[in-house]
Design a protein around this nucleic acid. Sequence first.
DNA 1: TTGTCGGCGTGGATCGTCTCGACCGCCAGA
DNA 2: TCTGGCGGTCGAGACGATCCACGCCGACAA
Lengths: 158, 158
Amino acid sequence: MDRLDRQIIAALRENGRATYADIGRTVGLSPSSVHERVGKLEAAGVITGYHATVDPRSVGLGVTALVGIQPTDTGSNDEIADEIVELAEVESCYAVAGDEAFVVKVRVETVDELEHALGRLRRIDGVARTRTTVVLSTRFEGRPNNRLLDADDDGVTS
Amino acid sequence: MDRLDRQIIAALRENGRATYADIGRTVGLSPSSVHERVGKLEAAGVITGYHATVDPRSVGLGVTALVGIQPTDTGSNDEIADEIVELAEVESCYAVAGDEAFVVKVRVETVDELEHALGRLRRIDGVARTRTTVVLSTRFEGRPNNRLLDADDDGVTS
DNA sequence: TTGTCGGCGTGGATCGTCTCGACCGCCAGA
DNA sequence: TCTGGCGGTCGAGACGATCCACGCCGACAA
């Protein structure tokens, strides 16, 4: 993980469909070398995937909410998480510190669907309460964060 | 936006580097047609980009927090948002209903950096209070959500 | 019915990229 | 100095991207 790797990662976070030739031109490496480095980054689990991002409204998912999930005193968080994974409308799930065990992001078509989704969450075994915050607009989301681009050492063991 | 478009979108959300030939095989279309449809989806703003996802820990961003931002009575939310965009450590920003104007997701290297980031947020003009929820682990994040794959009509005007 | 038009698909040609193996240079250690 | 490993470049064949010409089909008007 040297600076070249970080530049390659930054390029791929910016444009996940950039060709190895493109990346090679911007970082000053041959396409073969970029290919090899990217392969190693993928194998090491640094790059976990490539995904198209879609305007949620365009695919009919106009309602977003953040839901805090408070477990019962005896609830097992791992079991709750296993149930949450099964719900397709939950896009993200964070285990958090505090009264709530999880905060999840839910995206659905309508407020009706939101109601149903909350019902499904509440019905999970070990869930005591949910606290819902409706999103009015998402200003930005999943923005690449390249603050460490110019560091020269390893950030952390990978 | 017919079913084929939705299948193409699903394929690209799953694997943003899938080749048009690959996609064509899975949806039953020639690479040329896939190419054309994808171009139209991009032009229509349905597909907003392609991005590599990275294990945050591997790039040295081991601390994640969700921060609610409560504005002063006179604060302008748009002005606050403009300031938030400038902070590189904020990955996502949602305008929400409730006492808080925004909920943002922050990712930084260390708790020290988190403290600094919170300071920067609080120092924004119009921000009265912040409420921070530390993320212990992210179970999953930004998962593709293809619940509408089999619908046959347009979900919504794009 | 017939002609025309537009949208959308296929197939082919061409060009760029991927992706492999071969090779080279640098550096560390014996 | 020799040697081995790492990491780079180079080159070649295969594959994909991308453009264009063409065909099919449904809508519509005469």
